[in-house]
Structures are given as structure tokens and as C-alpha cells.
Design a protein around this nucleic acid. Structure first.
Lengths: 350, 350
DNA sequence: TTGAAAGCGCTACCAC
DNA sequence: GTGGTAGCGCTTTCAA
């Protein structure tokens, strides 16, 4: 009564996974022959091959990649590791997709993790990836000391940094010219008559933040525009914090007439604050990173557009070039960042 | 002249990675003792332990996870596999992040891949994951025949489906009540006086599309509203296609007065078309899935909000519950989907 | 064309 | 508290 269908006795105990030995036994050949069939070696009798393939199907055999790569002696695992701030962030997920595209094209898989902007978590993720013997690392880093990666690179695990410059180690890098792009954005606002430009920034521990600050300062200084400390807000971590910071800026005795939101998440907060206050048509805005509805909101948002997908693809290409023998000095590839004029950045001060 | 610094001779040849044997030799103990230190076994003399740890640091030893889990005989790899449509899609990346959160909390890593809505790619990804002996799978599936996964589940690799029902196999599932949510959205539009409601849908091969269609049809039929075939557009794959479909709908002789964009990417296209035509304040819109700037666009967009992050977390929890011994029948967890009223869905027909 | 033996890096098991 | 031996699943090497 309790046992309904089922031929054997065991029900709950998961069946043991078939190994090459099982396949060999079932098809009356040696494991070597099975191995040859699995790896498409040409020197196998077609009849034998067929018999082995049938056994493989019947037993549901799946080659154990770990065992294979272990024996292949330090061979590749066909797996790449990726560390970003947060796979849920649009910039990161676009980067992720770009890396994945190239990785998959080469028949590899991608293990990824979000550091949540915590150095300890970045390290923990990279350690886990190295234990799994990934063939290489793509890192959007946050750790103030990534020097330990030099050892890994020397031992044959290439690391490519994406978006941000690494700290304490020389390695391949794909990034935008954040300094130039930020200066361009600031000059754009200055050219439209703004003398007081609020700047919203992420944490200065990442190179992009510092570069964007420098670009802003350079442009503001060169134009002789206002450079109050009040106008620059750093260490903003979320849209909510950027929203609040925008409120504060607009509440200043002499509020800015324009805002440069120098990171994608911060742009969301600034935009929300401006719209809630009904100030979107009056206070100019330029955002770093394009976003999906930048052309639908009113006014449409002028942005510095980076191609995060291309960044990811390029990072992966650099990685594979190392694996394919390139052993030269670290390279830096600069992906273009473009100013896209849509309206919000061309508002003139009232 | 050519060789600058550097103590030894070799430069390019990557150093061989240290193994436990190397550590054992360097600290004059057996590999077993090294293994004990690495695994924090209590039965090691503190002095010995210290000596081994020093050698580990000096040699840059990193335990080989694959070798370890191989020997632990079918033991876990502490790695979970995830397949989604596209990690760059906001819904997928939020789901991804949710899965990752739970997976990391348990000290596991996540290998993920994008199927790009192609069944062959889904299979290819899952095959690659199974060869890597992931401890479990979370699948946002597209393959019309996922029956082969039953074997894997039986062999101890639990699979949990997310968002969409699996095809050809009974397994754990986390989803929204798409039918009820879609009916609710449609009824909401009907309650505001609409009799002709355009519906934008993804491919009917996924259960969510079918459910959302059914919810719409049920509501429209019950209300005796218009149910022309013209009003329903399926097989829309991108914002661009949804944009064009919206244009076509609005160009009909008797155009709809409201649009229900029943998938996140399609909502973007509909929104863009409405705004470009200046119809956003006139044609009502309800979108499936909330999006970041839904409250900033004018009018703000009424949506059915799903919690993709929670979906991912729940899927991962179901997975781990299986690994922790739950062996009962497949469970379906329904994550709430909520109608959020913001304005676009309350416009009345003109 | 096929197979036997050895061993990849690690741990379970048993001895001391 | 420590070490030897065997073997996880697979491939390399060499022999038949």
C-alpha cells in the first residue's frame, strides 16, 4: 500500500551518479575507451563508440569536470570569476552580461559575486574563486589593497580590472576616461551659464570617484565658477542618500542652479528629488551613465553614457589574451564615454 | 640589460601552484597534518599548526576545492547553478541578486548563465553546470521539454524553477499569481471606463505569458468589453518590438484607450511610444513589473509589482531545504504581486 | 583500436 | 598528536 509504483525498493535515497567505470562495465569496454568516446577521440571503432554512447544515455552519465581538470594537471577549469559591487545594479549587470558573452563564446562558465562594496567580501569572494581554480578574474574592485593578487597573476591566474583602477597591483584594466568625461559634463553646464554646480559623488576610495571629482574641479576652477565645499557631496551610497543630498543642496542659501550626479545610482536619487520638488524643469541635471528611461522623463536627461557591456567584453578579451600567451606589461583600455544631449543639461539658470 | 630586477632567472613561466605536499615538505610534517590545519581540525599541536600556517602563507598555498570535493566522494561543491533569460534584464538581475544573497549566506558560490530565451542554450548551460557538479539548480526556464531534469533531481541535484512553471517535470517552483495579477490589472482599467484594452505579451511558450493572457481574457469577457484579436499582440521580444506594436495599436481604426504591457521589457517600449506620440496623458497604461523611475515619468506609471529579489531568495531557500533533507513532493510558493496605483492606470478614456 | 597502470590534489580510515 | 595508505573520477603514458 505504501509503496505504489517503482520497480526496486529504495525510494528516497538518491541514486549514485554513474561514473566512467559504470559506463565501461555496462558497455564491456575499459574506462579508457569510455574516456576516448567522451572526449571525441578519433581512434575508436564506430561500433564500440555507439555501444558506449548508448550506455552513457542509459545511465545518465555526466563527465565530472572536476576530476577531469584535476588529472589534466592544473589544466583549465573553463571557468572565469567575476566580482562586482552588486549584480543587481544596472551598470554591474550590463558589465556582467558583457563578460558572460565573451566567456560563453569560448565555452567557459562564469562564477560571479557581489562585494556589496565591502573589501572583506571582495576578498572572501576572490578566495572562493581561487580555491575553485578559475582560469582568470575580472574584478570591479573596492579593496584598498589588492596587492595579494600579484602572486596569483604570477602563478597563472590573470586578473583584469574593470571600471576602477586596481590598488597596490599592476594589472590589465578596462575603464572610461572618467576625468575627461567629468570635465566635459561640467564644462557643458558651465557653457550653459551655470556658476554654481552641485556635485553628487560615490565614495572616494574608488578611482572613478576621485577622477570625476578632479574633472569637475578642473572645469570649475578654469571657468572661475563657484567652488564652495558646500556644492560637493561625497560618500553617497544609494539613490535615497542622493535624494536627500539633492534636497539639502537645493535648500542652501545660495542653491546650485545645476546638478551633476556623477554615478548611476545617484542620478536616480537626484532625479527623484528634482521631480518631487517640481524643480526638474528649472534646475539643470547631467547624469553619469545612461539609463533606460532617460529619454522618457521630462525633461529628457543629458548624460555621460558609458558602454558597460563593451567594458565587460573587453575585460574578458584581455583575460583570454593572457591565457593565450600574451605576457607583456599590463594594458589599459579606455572605452569611450560620450555626452548625450537631451534637454536637462541645457536648462539655463533662472 | 634585458633582465632588470628579479632574483631568479625565469620570468614568464608561471610558477607552479603549491600543493599540500609542498606545504608539508616546507613545514616538515605530513600532508595529513597540513590537511588538518587547513580544515581546522582540533587535533593539531598549536606549535605545529603555526609552523604549517607560516608555510602556507610563504608558499601562497590555496586548497584545491575540486580535489577536496572529489575525495569527499560525491560531496558538495558548495556551488549553485542559475539560469535566467538575461542577467542584464532588471527582473533577472534582481532575481539573481536574491539567489546570491541566500547562497552566499550559506557559504556557497553561484555560477550563472543567460539562456537568451533559447532552449538549446538553456540545455547547454545546464549541462555545463551539471558537469561541474553544482549542488542544485535555479532555473528560469524556456525549454519546452525540461523532463530530463527529473533524472538529475532523482540523482540528488535539486532543481527549483523561478517565475515560470517547468515543462515536463514536477519540481519546486516560486512564482507570482500571474493569472490573478493580470486579471486585477485588467479589471482596474475596466473599472476606469475602458472597453478597448490593448495587451502586449511575450512569447506564449512561457507559462507567465499564458497566465497573463488568461487573466486579461477572463476580465475582459466578464465585463463584456471588446475582445478583438487586434487588441492582443504576442511574441514581443524587446522594447523595440513593443514600441512598434504600441504604434500599431494606436493606429488602429478603433484604437484602444488603454494598454496593458504585460512584461517588464515591453512596458519600456510601450512607455516610449506613448511619450513620443504625446499620448502618455491620454492613453492609460498599466505595466507588469515595477521599474525604477515609474514614479518619475509623467504621468507616474501604475504597475503590478513583483518582488524578484524575494523570488530569488525563496527559490534558493527551497533548494537548500532539499539539500537539508526535505524529500517531500514538489512545492509551489506564490510570491505576492501587488497593484501600485500611480496615475497612468487611472486615466479615463477620452 | 584497446587496455593496464599510475597519479592529479586531496581526505577517510586506520595505525602508531 | 601524527603519518601511511588507499582511492575519489578522470586522463596520461605506455604497452599490446
Amino acid at each position: 500500500m505504501a509503496e505504489t509504483t517503482g520497480t526496486g525498493g529504495r525510494r528516497t535515497a538518491p541514486e549514485r551518479r554513474a561514473t566512467m567505470r559504470d559506463v565501461a562495465r555496462a558497455s564491456s569496454v575499459s574506462v579508457m575507451t569510455v574516456s576516448r568516446v567522451v572526449n571525441n577521440s578519433p581512434n575508436v571503432d564506430p561500433v564500440t563508440r555507439e555501444r558506449v554512447l548508448e550506455a552513457i544515455t542509459a545511465l545518465g552519465f555526466r563527465p565530472n569536470e572536476a576530476a577531469s581538470s584535476l588529472r589534466r594537471n592544473g589544466a583549465t577549469t573553463s571557468t572565469i570569476g567575476l566580482v562586482v559591487d552588486d549584480v543587481g545594479n544596472p551598470f554591474c549587470s550590463a558589465l556582467h552580461r558583457g563578460v558572460e558573452r565573451v566567456v560563453r563564446r569560448r565555452g567557459h562558465m562564469l562564477i560571479s559575486g557581489s562585494s556589496d562594496r565591502r573589501a572583506a567580501e571582495e576578498r572572501s569572494l576572490i578566495t572562493a574563486l581561487l580555491r575553485r581554480r578559475v582560469d582568470g578574474l575580472v574584478v570591479m574592485g573596492i579593496d584598498p589593497d589588492e596587492a595579494y593578487l600579484a602572486d596569483e597573476i604570477r602563478r597563472g591566474v590573470p586578473a583584469v580590472f574593470a571600471d576602477r583602477r586596481p590598488t597596490g597591483v599592476e594589472a590589465d584594466l578596462v575603464t572610461s576616461d572618467n576625468l575627461a568625461a567629468s570635465r566635459l559634463a561640467t564644462e557643458h553646464l558651465l557653457a550653459h551659464g551655470h556658476r554654481r554646480i552641485g556635485l553628487l559623488l560615490n565614495v572616494p576610495s574608488v578611482s572613478t570617484t576621485r577622477d570625476r571629482l578632479e574633472g569637475y574641479v578642473t572645469a570649475v576652477t578654469a571657468a572661475g565658477a563657484d567652488s564652495d565645499g558646500d556644492l560637493v557631496v561625497t560618500d553617497l551610497l544609494s539613490p535615497q542618500e542622493a535624494d536627500a543630498a539633492t534636497e539639502r543642496l537645493l535648500g542652501l542659501e545660495r542653491p546650485p542652479t545645476a546638478i551633476f550626479a556623477a554615478q548611476n545610482r545617484l542620478a536616480v536619487g537626484a532625479l527623484r528629488a528634482l521631480h518631487r520638488r517640481g524643480a526638474a524643469g528649472r534646475v539643470a541635471l547631467v547624469a553619469f551613465d545612461d539609463f533606460e528611461l532617460s529619454d522618457v522623463v521630462e525633461p529628457a536627461v543629458t548624460v555621460i553614457a558609458q558602454d558597460a557591456g563593451l567594458m565587460g567584453e573587453t575585460a574578458a578579451e584581455l583575460l583570454f589574451s593572457r591565457r593565450e600567451g600574451y605576457a607583456g606589461p599590463p594594458r589599459t583600455v579606455v572605452v569611450p564615454a560620450e555626452l548625450i544631449v537631451r534637454g536637462s543639461g541645457e536648462l539655463r539658470p533662472v
